[in-house]
Design a protein around this nucleic acid. Structure first.
Lengths: 227, 227
DNA sequence: TAGGTGTATATTGTCGACAATTTCCCGCCA
DNA sequence: TGGCGGGAAATTGTCGACAATATACACCTA
């Protein structure tokens, strides 16, 4: 359907580069959530004209990092409990589906790669005990592989291009990296096992539970922050 | 999360207007599937500059009607069996989820409105027996209402803004309007009943079956076209 | 003082032209 | 004759300036 996925395609145009920079800045909170976006200011800051900047803004809107109102400008999204729950509700279903499809379509070679990846991440995780950055990267990597394994380009596009930046934004800015580390690893292992056994139904179920657990974890943290 | 949904927001800017025109042109086959898109040509044709046109192209890419390659231009998507199946696979799951959520979140008033809508469409359908345009419109209308009833803005965005134009393109260009008319109406009725009973699980199941039936219908037509 | 109105400012949307890249075509060579 | 550069044409990406719209502020009125 298309050859190399945009998510892992390296930037070739100026708009691509500035998009990545702004994406990172928003996700990491460098540009505050809820703040207004000024096109002239950003253009100066990244030293380019407004044309490629606006192209980048269009794509930022696509991945839900900003909201635009015609003739009135753009704002960075505001993070909310309701938004987070809606997002995870969708993730649960979509990644569950991705697992089911991955069980049907992943090659043995791809499965082996994911397993190696898990072992590798686990060992490097033990060394860097507690450093959440590596957990984050490893976690994302696993989910990405499974999603790509579904071989459904629409599904891949939605999850990797449109939803994941926002997921990361919530994780980074609300500090969602609790003590689920080793448990998450076990869950990942169980999921890839189900995929390897070509048991799509089970893989679906396990992934839904995996994400639901993560969601409950977040809900708890939010709740005790609010009180 | 946001007030009025972009799908039903009337165009205010020139880019909005040309977007709608090109969308219609592509969906109806006025601009052939698979054909290359020339920015200068379209700009002349719609009598505006390339800036708003490029804005429109960015959004067309978002709803999968065109595919862009950096520095090399854009092409209208090509319709394929594989693409259609992948699309419907996703639809089944997402609209199933939408039903489940609608059963939880739709107000009684909204449910009543949908029921009135169904009766209305049914009666006008009987009059215009066989005119597929009205079936199409009525069908879309029903699905839209249910999706909006989910109250999940991410889900709404994906289904109404990003996937439905492509769904319509397949329906229009491959002539997907078989003799499922009255059966589809019954299925719609069953779905809204389940939602009214707040039986999300059943509503989910019925919607999946409803779309799966539509998919099988399409597969059959494709198959006998190919032979 | 509160509210509305009108102007001034700032921001977004659009335009036409230039730069960079790709594509196409022609000639050249094995 | 077939494949491989090289250059010309066309197309996309980027720029700076102008037009249209929205926001902010001061002023006037009740």
């Amino acid at each position: 359907m298309h050859q190399a996925h945009p998510a892992l395609r390296q930037p070739v145009t100026a708009a691509d580069r500035v998009l990545q920079e702004i994406q990172r800045a928003i996700v990491e909170g460098d540009i505050a959530a809820g703040s207004k976006i000024s096109e002239p200011e950003l253009a100066r800051r990244f030293d380019l004209s407004r044309a490629p900047l606006r192209e980048a803004l269009a794509r930022l809107e696509r991945c839900h990092l900003i909201e635009r109102i015609p003739n009135a400008g753009a704002r960075v999204v505001t993070l909310s409990t309701a938004g987070l729950l809606a997002l995870y509700q969708l993730r649960e279903n979509l990644e569950g589906l991705a697992c089911k499809l991955a069980a049907e379509h992943m090659t043995e070679a791809e499965i082996t790669e994911v397993r190696q990846l898990l072992d590798q991440h686990l060992s490097s995780q033990r060394v860097r005990e507690g450093e959440s950055y590596y957990q984050e990267a490893g976690d994302l990597d696993f989910h990405y592989r499974v999603i790509l394994g579904s071989k459904n380009s629409y599904l891949i596009n939605i999850l990797c291009d449109e939803l994941y930046y926002l997921v990361r934004m919530y994780r980074v800015q609300l500090g969602m990296n609790g003590p689920r580390v080793s448990r998450a690893f076990d869950e990942h292992k169980a999921i890839i096992n189900a995929i390897a056994n070509r048991d799509g139904e089970l893989a679906d179920l396990l992934m839904r539970r995996h994400i639901a657990a993560s969601r409950r974890n977040i809900e708890l943290q939010l709740q005790q922050m609010g009180s």
